[in-house]
């Protein structure tokens, strides 16, 4: 068959067909609301502010880093217990910012715990969880690709790993507070602290070290007070309210701990380039097994609620 010369008709038909195809698909496209721009319009910002963000920023640094507690445990020859940690699969259950923030803290503590005990391989999935939760909370830039790269590169060096991890959490906290999302920062801090305490109250501790650790547990009383103060800002939210009340219950246990403060002179001296403080003051914590048990139970209750 001879192929005919490109007739006008053929060209027209082809163009029409193309146009028709495009139109057809345009028309068929379902009508979806692409913009949620109604959310952009000005709204009434009324908050019950008791603490300013600035103040929160100042206080929140008092919530201890899990490093201290964990190092103490490790030094006391406490055995590593994987089972205590929050299973990574649980991340699938965290849908709301509330749960996500708390568990970001929880996993953060778990991560530190594993790193200090040099379980670097197992940390990978926890790290992934931390990253994912951070992403979900829109603070993923602190555990971005580059950071993760650095973490994997220095995975042999525990100090580096801890540094990078903690720096990330510090960064998130600062950012959130500056951002005006301090509630999330508070929740992260809370999660971190509860998990830390949970581990401390559930590991097997043998006599010579028990006292030291119990004392440290007792000293957390002060932290709890700060936490409650921080939380008070957000009690209008029912989830916060529930947690707040649970923490109040915990406070009741902690109230049983008494701490004595003995003030003595403090001096400084210069050694090389350092200003070294000579501290003669002391504190004494009165805590016994029963109190620790009480604390442990409540902590467990709160913690399990958080991670379920």
């Amino acid at each position: 068959m001879k192929t005919p010369v490109m007739t006008k008709k053929t060209v027209t038909v082809s163009l029409m067909l193309s146009g028709f195809i495009l139109l057809f698909f345009m028309a068929c496209a379902p009508d979806r609301r692409e913009e949620a721009t109604d959310l952009l319009s000005d709204r009434d910002i009324s908050e019950d502010i008791q603490l300013t963000d600035e103040t929160i920023g100042e206080i929140i640094t008092s919530v201890p880093n899990p490093v201290e507690m964990t190092v103490l445990l490790q030094r006391s020859n406490v055995v590593y217990t994987q089972d205590l940690l929050n299973p990574t699969a649980n991340i699938n259950n965290y849908n709301t910012n509330f749960k996500r923030s708390l568990n970001l803290g929880v996993y953060g503590t778990d991560l530190v715990y594993m790193n200090i005990y040099d379980r670097t391989v197992a940390t990978l999935s926890y790290l992934r969880n931390v990253k994912n939760l951070a992403e979900d909370l829109r603070i993923g830039q602190f555990f971005d690709y580059e950071t993760l790269n650095r973490l994997s590169e220095s995975s042999r060096n525990v100090d580096s790993v801890l540094y990078i991890t903690n720096r990330g959490f510090d960064g998130m906290s600062n950012y959130l507070i500056n951002q005006g999302r301090s509630s999330i920062a508070v929740l992260i801090a809370t999660g971190t602290w509860i998990e830390s305490l949970y581990i401390a109250t559930n590991v097997q501790i043998h006599p010579p070290n028990k006292e030291l650790i119990h004392q440290r547990i007792g000293e957390q009383k002060v932290v709890l007070d700060n936490l409650l103060l921080l939380m008070s800002n957000f009690r209008n939210d029912e989830q916060f309210e529930e947690l707040f009340n649970d923490l109040l219950d915990l406070k009741k246990e902690f109230d049983k701990v008494s701490i004595q403060y003995i003030y003595e002179e403090r001096t400084t001296k210069v050694v090389d380039d350092k200003v070294v403080v000579v501290d003669n003051s002391r504190s004494e914590v009165n805590i016994d097994d029963e109190i620790v048990e009480g604390i442990a139970q409540q902590v467990e209750y709160i913690r399990n609620k958080i991670v379920e």
Partner: peptide
């Protein structure tokens, strides 16, 4: 396209069919 925004799924499909149409013309004119 032409000042309008189209859902990607259907737009891409349309492009795909335009490709096919062009190939048909190539086929017809050998």
């Amino acid at each position: 396209f032409a000042g309008n925004l189209f859902d990607t799924f259907y737009f891409n499909l349309a492009i795909l069919w335009i490709f096919t149409l062009l190939l048909y013309l190539a086929l017809y004119y050998k």
